[in-house]
């Protein structure tokens, strides 16, 4: 099994940390991982993305231009990465602020209103965990219990009291993700 993912959105949306939680969780399952961020000044308020690879095999190239799954959190990123999803691949996006929706017919498209849901849950910071939950519903490559362990590994101790809330967000994400179209 190899799953090649791009996560893209605004800087400060928790794009990079969502990727980090993924790899920490995957390691709990003895999987091989790599996490390759975009870096540089464009991250200040601009766009940020990270390539995450999770695999049962040794990972060769950490840098890719084609992905099994794209997790898209703003319009700029949708414009940039819709074309980079492999045929038959998956695109998950938050509709918040999206004016031009995905158009490809050869991939499966899912939407998740995570920004809205995070608002309802009174905590904008758990937005990325809702998205992660949605992703794991579609691609159950990592068990939720391992995500909790991954959170323990990747979060500093002083945030550990927030883990139950994060777990709730993941579960909520699993519930609210919906299919838009299938390849």
């Amino acid at each position: 099994m190899t799953e090649e993912i791009i996560i893209a959105g605004f800087g400060g949306q928790g794009v990079l940390s969502m990727g980090k939680i993924m790899i920490h969780s995957a390691v709990m399952q003895d999987l091989e991982v790599s996490w390759m961020p975009s870096y540089g000044p464009e991250m200040r308020g601009g766009t940020a993305n990270v390539t995450v690879i999770v695999s049962t095999e040794r990972i060769s190239s950490p840098i890719l231009r084609q992905f099994d799954t794209a997790i898209i959190l703003n319009q700029q990123s949708l414009d940039k990465f819709e074309g980079s999803v492999k045929q038959g691949g998956t695109l998950i996006y938050d509709t918040n602020g999206i004016t031009r929706h995905p158009e490809r017919k050869d991939i499966s498209v899912y939407s998740i209103d995570a920004v809205e849901e995070a608002g309802k849950m009174n905590n904008p910071k758990i937005f990325n965990m809702i998205v992660l939950g949605g992703y794991l519903k579609i691609k159950p490559i990592i068990k939720t219990e391992n995500v909790v362990k991954g959170l323990q590994e990747s979060l500093p101790e002083r945030y550990h009291h927030l883990i139950p809330l994060n777990q709730q967000a993941i579960e909520r994400g699993m519930e609210i993700i919906r299919k838009v179209s299938e390849s």
Partner: peptide, 10 residues
């Protein structure tokens, strides 16, 4: 290089 410096792995 910047890629290996910035990327995370085991």
């Amino acid at each position: 290089d910047g890629a290996i410096g910035q990327m995370m792995e085991k």
